[in-house]
Design a protein around this nucleic acid. Structure first.
Lengths: 179, 179, 179, 179
DNA sequence: TTTT
DNA sequence: TTTT
């Protein structure tokens, strides 16, 4: 993917929900999380400590989505590098709505900062296959509404392909170490 | 401004509009622009060249806003470093709406990449002097709706203070070189 | 500090040594650490897992140096944002030598990623109050030689002002939360 | 290439020399340039404008090196994203020496900011072929000594493969648009 | 709405 | 050695 211009987002923060998994018709995973960053400052007048939490909707594709689905949980601290993308959609009243997300695909990277884990899950994987549209479901966590516009599929559609929790064999990944 | 987590956006792209200037009650400037980045790729099936342009709503504050107001124009190429912020607002139907912007204030930086100009307008300078301000008006440019929430004033309210085009005196800035 | 051009380094990695503290004649702290990042890849021929660790010499100034001196230890995981600087010096044989460091001062930021701590120690705060310091020792880990070229002062000059380990009062910092 | 930790450098600046081209035994290009960034500040005492230029040795590999060789010239303004790497070598006196470079390969990106050109030459190309070691030659440009440690070959070894100036056929690249 |  |  070539590009004109630079579109880069770097976030470090904690995840506010369990990753929401979806699957493309071709089986490729998509994982969505809400990541929090916060600014703190002292009020000029009252001198009181203020804090504002920013919630970022982060969407992982491909291999990174697999890793997120397996190892990222509510409360996990992540380093994320992706790009900004604003999707336009139309709500039930026919009004144009916009949702901005941080896309993390093969051009981005991710790193789990929890525990004794870590490492880059950066991406130079072959590009994801295009796929076909389908169902939809809401996102209950994101700081922004996230109408279903991208096809998804329930995880149970492929339980045998990717065991949910403990990663028994990393051979599912094309690299020895997924992160 | 301390922070928990990292919230950083880096963009390089061209400006699609003349900067929209507003002024705070205390006189501080706010400049908003739309910055384009684009991805290009070859369609897997047709082999045709594809392109998707992403428009970013970038909001500059303080001294950087002044510089943008004076030197940035439709078509300008900019390097921008800021942070993501999503504002919530309620539309006329009482529906919650969200608008995500890249905020560039003293914690960010900007650089004009056009012409023989250039240089960093990054910000660790003492705060710009407050000056005059007034009314308010909507934003017609952003890729996303941007209801007027912050006080603003028409540029014509202060033409004598800040000449529009050729910068005759850099003494308006507290640094020798504004950018 | 204005600039022409962008000079930015972002690192996430673990610290290989106890921070080496120095103090300026005016009391400002300087903390130097060696931070490791590593690339791993599979050998094209043997198929064996390869790893190369890169050691980065990171130098913190001012308030960030204070925080590093108090809270960063061998093994700590850090997010660091600074700028590249290559110093030239002459060795005992009169040969020009160069040492490249990542400088983290008020234009940069740092974040401890260990434990339940975290938060940005980025810097737009007024300069930290000078205070006393203590020990000093060489760096056995850095990938590059680091001859003492900047003025320093023995730590014992200020022990009573800033207790070494557990931070009893964060009021020593001008922000409520140092990181 | 997976990684533990993040090692990222972002530079925007002008090139101080014509790119120095080398070629791997397998024909892969390597381009080295010196890129300048500078900080300016006002002297606290004299009030005079000060400037310090930092020179960065940037080494491009693969397709990006080809593009640099064709389109980058002395004075060109570049956006560069790469990683830090310090090489160790031994000088003629048997003393260990170090040279830090910014490596820009498939994990990095580059963008020409001159003229009406531009665009991302980012990298998701297939990994470069491993190659065999060979000859050596000095580097006359870098801000730091750069003893030959990597095999190279004189450009004249393949002049017929890659016409020097106007890019007649972009088919040499695996993308429609090289930048 | 910009750029190429 | 570049730029402004």
């Amino acid at each position: 993917m070539a590009a004109r211009g630079i579109n880069k987002v770097i976030l470090v923060g904690n995840i506010g929900n369990e990753p929401e998994m979806r699957y493309m018709p071709n089986g490729n995973a998509v994982a969505t999380v809400s990541l929090a960053t916060s600014d703190t400052w002292k009020d000029k007048n009252t001198g009181e400590q203020q804090e504002r939490t920013e919630w970022h909707r982060v969407v992982f594709f491909g291999k990174l989505a697999e890793i997120v689905g397996q190892y990222v949980h509510k409360g996990s601290k992540l380093y994320v590098e992706g790009r900004l993308q604003t999707r336009k959609w139309t709500d039930q009243q026919g009004v144009d709505r916009y949702s901005t997300e941080i896309i993390v695909d093969m051009g981005g990277t991710m790193q789990l900062l929890d525990s004794r884990q870590g490492g880059d899950a950066g991406g130079y994987q072959p590009p994801p296959q295009p796929y076909q549209q389908q169902a939809a479901a809401g996102n209950q966590y994101g700081g922004q509404p996230a109408p279903a516009q991208q096809p998804m599929q329930q995880p149970q559609n492929r339980p045998q392909q990717q065991p949910q929790q403990p990663a028994p064999n990393f051979d599912d990944f094309d690299d020895d170490i997924p992160f």
